[in-house]
């Protein structure tokens, strides 16, 4: 087992009554790209804020390269952060932004300029480097946001929902960048509430909800949690209570109810032969069903199983 660059142990944090993190523990290997998947409100931003030292009053410990992260301010200089917000100056251009943020790290000017050019090429903004950032599209801004986090060659990059609010193409480009950064040996933790992103990008995936890790591993390992089951997604104009009442009367022969919400439910079948009977059962009881999808086992099913609710934008 490789040495861990980051070890988070039993991190807990509450805002009054709201528990944002509950005994959250996570390890990250050197050079590893970890996707932290969790729905809105799961506690992802809270975790990043604690790691960046801008949140107090938590319990638990964080070691970075074997040392207490909060004991030595200097350690933080080895970490790069990409906040959920566009944390840069819109009235400056991309180069000026990179030079400013890099300037805070006392990087020699010549080296800083070289690094800025390098990063602009990496995030494909070289041609637009002299334009005020406020003229950029959402995707370009997100890319700049990532580039700034990398200006001081951090050993660990933390990204908080780096793909929020941009189109599919721009997302692909950000995920590409993250993969590239990982290949160059930087460890990466990035949070998202989108399944497809972690599926495509990360060697290791952690699923979190309500402030704690529910499952982690490679994609294949996680899918094994659900097993070789077919997943059926039922949608229609029904309430969660009505669906639950009806499905309880059905003998599914190893059928598992993954999640039930108003208008949508997920069921896993070890025995796919039972699916038509289940449909008949629902129709006979006049459950208004609009759509029914059969899916092979995937991360979504794992997520549904772990959290009991589905994940949406």
């Amino acid at each position: 087992m490789q040495q861990h660059i980051l070890e988070i142990k039993n991190l807990s944090k509450s805002y009054g009554e709201t528990v944002a993190l509950a005994n959250f523990s996570l390890d990250l290997g050197k050079g590893e790209v970890l996707g932290l998947l969790g729905p809105n409100g799961a506690g992802k931003t809270t975790l990043i804020s604690i790691l960046s030292g801008t949140l107090r009053d938590f319990t638990g410990s964080v070691t970075f390269k074997g040392q207490d992260l909060f004991a030595d301010r200097g350690l933080k200089n080895l970490i790069g952060i990409v906040p959920q917000e566009m944390a840069f100056y819109e009235d400056l251009n991309a180069t000026e932004n990179l030079l400013f943020w890099g300037g805070l790290y006392a990087i020699p000017e010549k080296e800083l300029k070289k690094r800025a050019r390098e990063l602009l090429a990496l995030v494909e903004l070289g041609a637009r480097a002299r334009e005020p950032v406020k003229k950029f599209s959402g995707g370009m801004k997100r890319r700049l946001n990532v580039a700034i986090g990398l200006i001081h060659r951090p050993e660990l990059l933390l990204l908080d929902e780096p793909t929020v609010g941009i189109d599919v193409q721009a997302k692909m480009s950000i995920l590409d960048i993250i993969r590239n950064v990982g290949r160059e040996g930087t460890s990466v933790v990035f949070t998202t509430h989108q399944l497809s992103e972690v599926e495509q990008t990360c060697a290791r995936i952690a699923i979190m909800d309500r402030g704690t890790i529910l499952a982690q591993g490679t994609l294949a390992e996680l899918i094994r949690i659900v097993g070789e089951k077919e997943v059926v997604e039922v949608s229609g104009e029904f309430s969660a209570a009505a669906f639950s009442a009806i499905i309880q009367q059905f003998d599914g022969n190893g059928m598992e109810v993954l999640s039930v919400t108003d208008n949508q439910a997920h069921l896993a079948f070890a025995d796919p032969e039972r699916i038509p009977a289940m449909m008949q059962h629902l129709f006979q009881r006049h459950l208004p069903i609009a759509d029914l999808k059969i899916k092979s086992p995937n991360l979504e099913a794992v997520f549904l199983k772990m959290t009991g609710r589905s994940l949406r934008d």
Partner: peptide, 14 residues
């Protein structure tokens, strides 16, 4: 503080 720049600054030696 509102747009994350402070968080980013506090992460640097500043």
């Amino acid at each position: 503080r509102a747009d994350g720049k402070t968080r980013r600054m506090m992460f640097s030696p500043l």
